[in-house]
Write a protein that binds this DNA or RNA. Structure first.
Lengths: 225, 225
DNA sequence: AAAAACCTTACATCAGGTGTAAGTTCAAAT
DNA sequence: ATTTGAACTTACACCTGATGTAAGGTTTTT
């Protein structure tokens, strides 16, 4: 069953939406603490986020941006402001649908199921800056083409992406590549890192693996010209 | 520049749409022969189809279905009938957006660019019955997972898919796999075909490669139970 | 029953990914 | 500036998995 996270500050509308969705075969989680909405949402690990724009602390726009930044969860915006500017804004931020209240139940359900369908099978894809990586095959999609990364390079890139911009220790990478049990020469990791860097450079990827002395490695975006 | 194919029987609206799209950086082709619209459309090899519902011979719905069947071009439906049933219908047929006239220019443009963005990079994916195949890496997407096919198996599957259900001669397959110049043992092809069949079976794919005695091979859907 | 078309299995070969070893470069800290 | 440990590079040998070859089996048609 697909999980939907409903973000709406008006309690009446919120429960109405929740029960409507539940009646239609979704599992629903609601947000009622509006302090740090994006991380609250991500705690639910939803398959889709239904998001209002007018919220207490942070606007739906900001939330949408942050969600899209930290994850690749689909976002459907449902708002009472029927403003073209809002719509343009939302879609530019990466929202997947924009609907206005009052909503037609069927229309909302259909849009939701459409967005979910659109994302189907993409759950194995993780997003990096300017590219996609298939976690199962380590097929890398960039710039309209695709390449298969060698398994080890793929695993390293995967673990780096899962920590978006954060440093990842050698140990963590090593665990991911060879499993925590085996001991592997530090150097083996080194060599594979070099190989990954070379591959990424040869693909003109807009990011690099950067060493953080004494700590580990991280992905950084390379902004050229 | 992206090509958009405009399908609209009202000449005034048609030219208005065309020039509007052209002014916004698209190359536009229009349909003015409504005899066999789907194939007329596909002749243009568009990146997106903008489709009316009320048309002389064939309804936009039928056209949409046929387009989605024969290709994987995105379809945006733009119609004057603002009917929820129509919308549900269209989206179920695989339409990517549903908009009603009168349209707001900006909204239409935004939706179009969104749909195009959504399809970006998928130009290397060809659709088979129940699965997708990446033509570059021969990564096969089925049932929420993905597998990499060996190059030869991938090439064979590709050439078979490009002829959707039609027979393909051994020669054609051989040309695709090894190039027309080299002569290769008939048996090499045979072995690779067997390997492909085995792979497909082990993946529980809903189709098989079937031999057509004296002619070649074709993909057939296996309908079990 | 014989021939033709199609299929299967096993094996040797080859390419590409991988770990190892040995050595070089880099950058922070004295 | 020198030192020192961390980070990097290159070359090589090994191993896995994809491929072509060979030899023989099965199915279909006449």
């Amino acid at each position: 069953m697909k999980r939907i996270c409903v973000v709406e500050d008006e309690p009446l509308v919120r429960t109405e939406l929740a029960s409507m969705l539940e009646n239609n075969g979704y599992s629903v989680g609601v947000i009622d603490n509006f302090d740090d909405v994006p991380s609250e949402i991500l705690k639910h690990e939803p398959d889709l986020v239904l998001l209002d724009i007018n919220l207490p602390n942070m606007s739906g726009f900001q939330i949408c941006r942050e969600l899209k930044n930290k994850s690749s969860v689909p976002v459907v915006i449902l708002t009472s402001r029927d403003d073209l500017k809002d719509e343009l804004n939302a879609l530019e931020l990466g929202a997947d649908e924009f609907m206005t209240k009052p909503y037609r139940k069927e229309r909302l359900l259909l849009r939701i199921s459409n967005v979910l369908k659109r994302y189907e099978g993409r759950s194995n894809l993780i997003e990096g800056p300017g590219f996609l990586l298939d976690k199962l095959t380590y097929t890398l999609y960039i710039d309209g083409t695709s390449v298969i990364l060698p398994k080890n390079q793929g695993k390293i890139l995967e673990v780096l992406l899962q920590n978006r911009g954060e440093e990842v220790s050698r140990q963590e990478i090593s665990d991911k590549v060879w499993g925590t049990s085996e001991f592997i020469d530090e150097n083996a990791l080194q060599v594979n890192l070099t190989r990954l860097k070379k591959t990424m450079a040869s693909l003109n990827m807009p990011c690099t693996v950067q060493a953080v002395r004494g700590v580990g490695y991280k992905i950084v975006e390379t902004e050229e010209i």
